[in-house]
Design a binder for these strands. Structure first.
Length: 254
DNA sequence: ATGGCCTGCAACGCAGGA
């Protein structure tokens, strides 16, 4: 089984990218973020033709998440139960016996801003939700755009980014709280190239100069970890025409 | 050369991203 996450930064613009990537990778699950598509406009037909079942939770202009799966999706939950968040950022479903939680963590804009406070509060709600889900599902994966670079090795220039948004200690503490629930960062279970990033700024020729961050992650429960055989970032789609600023991350299981 | 973008919405710039 292969599961993946990809912040597409508008599914309308990136639909062809998703279909093309699917043809060469044939993953079982794709968690999408920033679909920026209302549910009435979700490209059901094209993705059905591509072989997917799907669940989506979108809104106008901003945010929006979706889960594409080869198998059937069941027990779908939209958002974080008990947390009345107008921003649509979380979608949960069970696929092939694995609980899949697709997350688009708020960006936070700048340390100390209102959006930063929202991000930290939001992460608190997410942590409590995942704790509950873990109690009910031994095979669980949280995939998505976490908007947190967990460690300095995930940052192209740690000195420049020190204490900044995506790298601040309170954000990293929240990430480590999630890990503390009994989750593993699948990417770090394996040897990886140095300077492994999943996002590069559109500005300043970020990709060409490899000025990236690793902020898209796949966190897996202990039971899934036992069968995890690999995890990698696929940089190829970032080289295509009109790319998303994020690349897919894939984890494989025996 | 030390900065350079992209998307959606609706308007002819803005908010937001990271």
């Amino acid at each position: 089984m292969k599961i993946s996450t990809w912040n597409v930064n508008s599914l309308k613009v990136r639909l062809e990218h998703v279909c093309q990537w699917n043809e060469s990778h044939a993953v079982d699950v794709i968690c999408l973020q920033e679909t920026k598509t209302v549910d009435e406009n979700f490209p059901v037909e094209a993705l059905t033709q591509a072989g997917f079942s799907m669940s989506y939770f979108g809104q106008k202009t901003y945010n929006g998440v979706a889960i594409l799966a080869r198998g059937e999706l069941s027990d779908v939950v939209q958002g974080i139960p008990g947390y009345d968040d107008p921003q649509r950022r979380v979608l949960t479903a069970t696929v092939d016996g694995v609980r899949i939680i697709d997350v688009y963590v708020p960006n936070g804009q700048a340390v100390g801003s209102e959006k930063y406070d929202y991000k930290l509060e939001w992460l608190g709600h997410l942590t409590r939700y995942i704790e509950q889900e873990l109690a009910n599902h031994a095979k669980l994966a949280v995939l998505g755009d976490f908007n947190i670079a967990p460690a300095d090795e995930d940052v192209h220039d740690p000195d420049q980014w020190e204490g900044k948004i995506l790298c601040s200690t309170p954000e990293r503490d929240k990430f480590n709280e999630l890990i503390g629930l009994g989750l593993s960062d699948a990417f770090r279970l394996f040897d990886q190239p140095e300077r492994s990033f999943s996002w590069w700024d559109y500005r300043a020729a970020g990709f060409r100069r490899d000025l990236g961050l690793r902020i898209d992650h796949i966190l897996i429960s202990d039971e899934l970890r036992d069968s995890c055989t690999g995890c990698h970032i696929d940089k190829e789609p970032r080289k295509w025409e009109r790319p998303s600023d994020h690349t897919p991350v894939v984890a494989e299981f025996a």
